[in-house]
Design a protein around this nucleic acid. Structure first.
Lengths: 168, 168
DNA sequence: TATTGTTATACTCTATAACTATA
DNA sequence: TATAGTTATAGAGTATAACAATA
């Protein structure tokens, strides 16, 4: 396809042949997405934003965001992990994890313990308070998950988890 | 469930009963995700990151990111839209769209035209150069989409688009 | 030499608030 | 008074680079 042919094609596709602008108000639902409807990434991105907003709202009272929840969950299930191990497992930059842990440590939810085996590294643990708190976070996160289920349907949610199992 | 019971439960679940830290190197693939495996949001987030990275890489030569692509595609299919209309349709903050359009306008891909109907607003159009460029971006984006298909499978990708059709 | 944790910088993105010019 | 576009700020998140302590 030549550049000029591509340009001609593109010019034929729009529904509205506007001059210098819209003469009337255009509602969002009548704006076509064109090629975007065929991109999985677009739908996934919008869905992910919806999910995170619901998660943040559902866990708003305890002030825990998705990344903080994932860090605490992994430390809770694997006590003694180093920062590097947590960062790699969750795909978080180690530099960013430093600040996340600073915040969680200030809130007395997580503690860094100097490792005796390798004095460069810290062994990460939940505090007793952190374990109690995490149990509550998990109950709220399960509530959030029911919102997801209500939004897309029980079977669709399970199918989604199957399809994306390789990305965890 | 009481708080102490929750704490006791949590203490029983970890596979490793570490003291002050790991005595040996722990590989990423043996770190359990615990509750995260049941959260659609976790898998969706990891998948979305993978998709965006592939998109950015595949369109690296033309220096176009997912959000820029979505803005140009919508303007191309609906010439004359106002900034507010584009922002609402794509779920972008209008303040952020200002900078996105500044960048696209500097690159001569998009132009703002003062609307005669409502002099507060701008009618957005692709330049001729922008239409040619968008045709190329769409070909590269289609190539990216084939990477997604190769990653999760043709049928899974289609099922995913069906499940998430409501979020577009 | 290489790795762990840290600090720092820059850029993207989200979320607000306030300002201006119009309506 | 309300809206469209703009400017500004703050916080998350991503991506780097460099450094000290340690391996």
């Amino acid at each position: 396809m030549t550049a000029s042919a591509a340009r001609a094609d593109t010019r034929l596709s729009p529904r509205k042949r506007a001059g210098n602008g819209p003469a009337r108000r255009i509602d969002a639902d009548e704006i076509g997405l064109d090629a975007l409807v065929g991109h999985a990434g677009y739908a996934v991105r919008r869905f992910q934003i919806w999910i995170f907003q619901d998660f943040i709202k559902t866990l708003g009272d305890v002030d825990i965001r998705p990344t903080q929840y994932s860090v605490m969950t992994v430390i809770g299930a694997n006590p003694g992990l180093s920062q590097m191990a947590v960062a790699k497992r969750l795909g978080i930059e180690r530099a960013r994890l430093v600040h996340l842990l600073d915040s969680l440590e200030q809130r007395k939810l997580v503690k860094r313990i100097k490792s005796k085996a390798d004095r460069r590294s810290h062994a990460l643990h939940l505090t007793a308070q952190g374990e109690t708190a995490l149990a509550k976070f998990k109950r709220l996160a399960a509530e959030h998950e029911r919102h997801v289920e209500a939004k897309i349907g029980k079977e669709n949610r399970e199918r989604l988890l199957q399809i994306l199992a390789g990305f965890t």
